[in-house]
């Protein structure tokens, strides 16, 4: 029975992952590809001698390019943009798309894994707090998942395009994960507990990471056009909302039909 419950969540996540891939290819990936044309241009083109643009480029790819100032300078001078370099990372580090997949296949695979992951998290929360996901309430479950994992963290760290200035990666990841977790607990207290105290504590938990503040970059100059960034933020939030709604409804459908059927 436990296995059946987990399988149901995984199946729902995989279906939502396929849906998400289609939505991304339509609305999000074209913007990422467009932004990559600007990524890494600033240091080489506009301000060749200054330190800061190089530092920006280095920050954005700290996980891929060596941490030394020399590495940053080299990457700034390189005619190959960092985005392009991603796909040839294997020559220098253990990078490159796994299993020799195409970029699209890699994205599909990642969406399937992410979909199954979020679906299991949603199912896990549902099981632990004892509120089943059904076809009737699936969309609400999805909407709350989106609020906790996407909208509330996006207040501090909006979805970013390649080439956007950003603070240190580790700091942002910690803030992001902590905010998603606190938001989820806060939303549960706010929406599902009857006590007034619980609702106040829930609001406080949701507000706390926002008041604390997300790590922000020191230098916000970027070569990527602002309009592109605005379009991308909306597209990313809209597609993830669609993903979570689909995920919630399919989870509810599968639960009603196959798991909790009597």
């Amino acid at each position: 029975m436990i296995v059946k419950t987990l399988l149901a969540a995984i199946v729902a996540g995989l279906i939502a992952g396929v849906f998400m891939t289609a939505a991304q290819e339509m609305r999000v990936v074209p913007l990422i590809l467009h932004a990559e044309k600007y990524e890494g241009e600033a240091p080489a083109a506009d301000q060749p001698a200054t330190q800061e643009p190089a530092a920006v480029g280095h920050d954005q790819h700290s996980s891929l390019i060596g941490a030394s100032p020399l590495g940053a300078a080299l990457s700034a001078l390189s005619p190959v943009t960092p985005a392009y370099a991603h796909e040839h990372e294997g020559e220098h580090e253990e990078g490159g798309i796994m299993f020799g997949l195409s970029r699209f296949s890699g994205t599909l695979l990642a969406n399937l894994v992410t979909g199954a992951g979020f679906s299991l998290l949603l199912a896990g929360v549902s099981l632990v707090i004892g509120y089943p996901i059904t076809l009737a309430n699936g969309a609400l479950w999805g909407a709350f998942g989106w609020l906790a994992v996407h909208l509330l963290p996006a207040i501090g760290l909006p979805p970013e395009l390649p080439g956007f200035p950003a603070a240190e990666l580790g700091d942002r990841q910690v803030w992001w994960a902590a905010t998603a977790l606190l938001s989820a607990v806060g939303l549960y207290l706010l929406a599902l507990r009857r006590e007034l105290v619980a609702k106040v504590v829930g609001l406080a938990l949701i507000a706390a990471p926002q008041i604390y503040g997300a790590p922000q970059p020191l230098d916000i100059s970027s070569n990527v056009p602002a309009v592109l960034g605005a379009e991308f933020a909306v597209a990313a939030l809209a597609t993830t909302l669609a993903f979570w709604l689909v995920l919630g409804v399919i989870s509810g459908f599968i639960n009603d039909r196959f798991v909790n059927a009597h």
């Binding site: 998400m20 991304q24 999000v28 990936v29 990422i32 996980s63 891929l64 991603h86 796909e87 990372e89 580090e93 253990e94 990078g95 490159g96 798309i97 796994m98 997949l101 970029r103 890699g106 994205t107 695979l109 990642a110 969406n111 894994v113 992410t114 996407h150 963290p153 996006a154 760290l157 909006p158 979805p159 970013e160 395009l161 390649p162 950003a166 990666l169 942002r172 990841q173 803030w175 992001w176 990313a236 939030l237 597609t239 993830t240």
Partner: peptide, 17 residues
Amino acid sequence: AVLHDTAHDTRHSYGFP
């Protein structure tokens, strides 16, 4: 690096840092 490159577009789309 491998996971990052494979999931690159997904990470951006989902707003992961």
